[in-house]
């Protein structure tokens, strides 16, 4: 059985907000290690990999590995019934036909209990090859969200060019073109806003902005984001949390 108690229930609410538009149904794979999820969007262009490590919960118990098949829209609706400061406890027995959720307020004088029906989901896990990326950009997650949203005004696609001087996001469309360049600035006072680049080789890649904008729904989970890129391989967009991560992979657009 699974029992996982999360002091900051708001974290789970934010995680669901970050994935529910990209994927509809997914298995939460529960093991000793924690709660993981890997799922592709319906068009097989993007993939979400989530890990909530066991040490983010107190207590965390999972005697046997369990796959909890969840409709993410339903789960996010139930989680909206939890207060932002509530402690959330997840429980499931080995039959895994329902997920029990308990929300306790901080004064511990209001306890709400919900049960969500689970489903059998036939999901195949994809093997993600270990990749040494040619360029890794670490930047403010809010800045990344703003750039994606701004450039969506111009085009469906963004071209990302990384050199040792900086990273340039450019878009061209019917109404014109636009570009935002962030210079590498490791010395700025505010560490959270710094743009840092690790570069083996310059890269220039095209991606769908619709997906990138979708990924930025994870912005409330982390102040920083990293973009890992190599020529003609999927982009990795990672938001690190205190006890885990949310990673998005996006297949590139490749010219003829």
């Amino acid at each position: 059985m699974l029992e996982a108690r999360l002091q900051t229930g708001a974290l789970l609410k934010k995680v669901l907000e970050a994935i529910k538009e990209l994927i509809t149904d997914a298995n939460f794979d529960c093991s000793d290690n924690g709660i993981a999820l890997q799922a592709m969007d319906n068009s097989h262009v993007a993939l979400v990999a989530l890990l909530l490590r066991h040490d983010g919960f107190e207590p965390y118990r999972c005697d046997r590995s369990l796959a909890l098949g969840v409709n993410l829209v339903s789960l996010s609706k139930v989680l909206r019934c939890a207060g932002n400061d509530d402690i959330i406890t997840l429980k499931a027995d080995d039959t895994a036909d329902v997920l029990s959720l308990t929300f306790e307020n901080t004064d511990n004088d209001r306890i709400s209990e919900y049960e969500l029906k689970l489903m059998d989901i036939d999901s195949e896990h994809l093997g993600i090859p270990d990749t040494t990326y040619e360029a890794v950009v670490q930047m403010s997650s809010a800045e990344f969200a703003r750039i994606c949203k701004d450039l969506q005004v111009l085009s469906d696609s963004v071209q990302i060019d990384v050199t040792k001087e900086g990273v340039k996001f450019g878009a061209k469309g019917e109404l014109g073109s636009g570009a935002v360049t962030l210079k590498q600035n490791g010395n700025v006072d505010k560490e959270e806003e710094a743009t840092l680049i690790e570069l083996q080789q310059n890269v220039s890649l095209n991606f769908s902005l619709k997906y990138l904008v979708n990924f930025t729904k994870a912005t409330p989970l982390a102040s920083r984001v990293s973009l890992s890129m190599s020529s003609e391989v999927p982009l990795l967009v990672e938001y690190k949390m205190e006890a885990g991560y949310i990673r998005y992979y996006l297949a590139p657009k490749i010219g003829e």
Binding site: M40, H44, V45, A46, L47, E124, H125, L126, G127, I128, P129, S157, N206, S208, V233, P234, Y249, L250, A251, P252, K253, I254, G255, E256
Partner: peptide, 14 residues
């Protein structure tokens, strides 16, 4: 214009 690739051409089912 560049064409959207499928993720399945990079990541294979386990």
């Amino acid at each position: 214009a560049p064409v959207q690739k499928s993720l399945l051409s990079f990541f294979k089912p386990k």
